[in-house]
Amino acid sequence: MGGCLELVEIEGTAEKLLYFIRDNPGCHLRKIRREMGISMGTVQYQLDKLEKIGKVTSTRRGFYKYYFPVGLFKDNEKDILEVLTHETARKILMFILEQKNPTQTDIVNNVKISARSISWHVGRLIALKIISEIRDGRYKRYQLQEDDAKYILILLRNYYPSIWDKWSMRVVEMFLSLSSSTEME
């Protein structure tokens, strides 16, 4: 009965919206409306419906509400999305995407913030299984988890930080830079 209802619910516009969100995780309401050419009222109504039946999830950041397909990342979904709004984490991820498997020194030289701050961000990305660390002689190299690379790239494009997020992370970075550095490669 529930399955039947679900099939009926995600037909037509709702189905199109669901595919769009699967292809563009982290897109916001206005972008969906603009790119799909549907009225705001219809988009909102259909998205609410998809949220209620558990097909999509949303999170609000500043003025925007962002939508994701449910189960995009299996574990720590919210944490992963949270990390992707950190300006420095995004820069690190973009650099890793570009360079494939840079060392920590490469990242420090490119992103141009303190080694302590980079070390902390990299640690978090590893803990959330967004990137992995590989040993290369005396160096540690970092690479994106192959399966998530495509989604990470789309999310980085769609799910950007608000000014408040950027500023709050700069407070963290300022204090991380002030704190004495103890570990490097």
């Binding site: 949270e82 408040w164 709050s168 992370m169």
Partner: peptide, 8 residues
């Protein structure tokens, strides 16, 4: 800002 930073 620091409270937001801590919560994040």
């Amino acid at each position: 800002l620091s409270i937001t930073a801590y919560r994040k």
